[in-house]
């Protein structure tokens, strides 16, 4: 089944409105920040891919958001009504790969990569992540992934198969570069000490 058809089917099987990360999808389809009400006349209608990309890539203070899963998506906007293809495309911008990773996870095709394997592939400035003490990893995951990101870090915290009828869970199968950057700093401090 094509990913877009899977997604449409998942929406049809579950009660609306649907929440994905920090956004909420209303029948129709309307897309807003989950803390905004779609009927709020103060919301600005956001059209065009460039405006939407800017909204996703910068927070309300204009700071760059390199980690899409990090909380901090701007509020005060509305997209729609959207076709299922447009909605699917918007989700790819908001949370890249989210639907594809969930489909692969539910189909038992998603293989999380343990952190040592990810660290072993790093070279140059990031090679030092290979020396991150194992006992430091849980605290970093807690700080960056659990409190700082809406994706579930499958590569560190085992998870049962998501409840297929309930949620559109955001998954993370491998430590991202944002995590590696923080791990590098931590490992460098430890090495210097």
């Amino acid at each position: 089944m094509k990913l877009i058809h899977w997604f449409e089917s998942r929406l049809a099987q579950t009660p609306s409105p649907w929440t994905v990360g920090e956004v909420r999808i209303y029948p129709g389809y309307l897309l807003t920040h989950r803390e905004d009400a779609p009927e709020d006349s103060r919301l600005r209608n956001l059209s065009g891919w460039e405006a939407f990309l800017d909204l996703v890539r910068f927070d309300a203070a204009g700071r760059f958001r390199p980690l899409r899963g990090a909380p901090g998506l701007q509020k005060g906007w509305r997209r729609g009504p959207l076709s299922i293809a447009e909605l699917f495309s918007d989700l790819r911008v908001l949370y890249p790969g989210a639907v594809a990773l969930l489909v692969a996870w539910e189909g038992k095709r998603l293989v999380p990569t343990p952190f040592p394997d990810t660290a072993r592939r790093q070279t140059g400035l990031y090679e030092v992540t290979q020396r991150l003490p194992r006992e430091d990893l849980p605290a970093l995951v807690e700080q960056i992934c659990v409190r700082g990101c809406l994706r579930h870090p499958l590569w560190h915290l085992p998870a049962s198969q998501p409840d297929k009828q309930e949620r559109l869970t955001l998954l993370c199968p491998e430590a991202c570069h944002y995590f590696l950057h923080q791990a590098r700093s931590r490992a460098a401090v430890k090495t210097a000490a």
Binding site: L101, L110, E174
Partner: peptide, 16 residues
Amino acid sequence: FWKEEPSYRNVLYEVE
């Protein structure tokens, strides 16, 4: 992207 999302590895889950 190498430094942003989606990563080189994850994008292949999207390609149909």
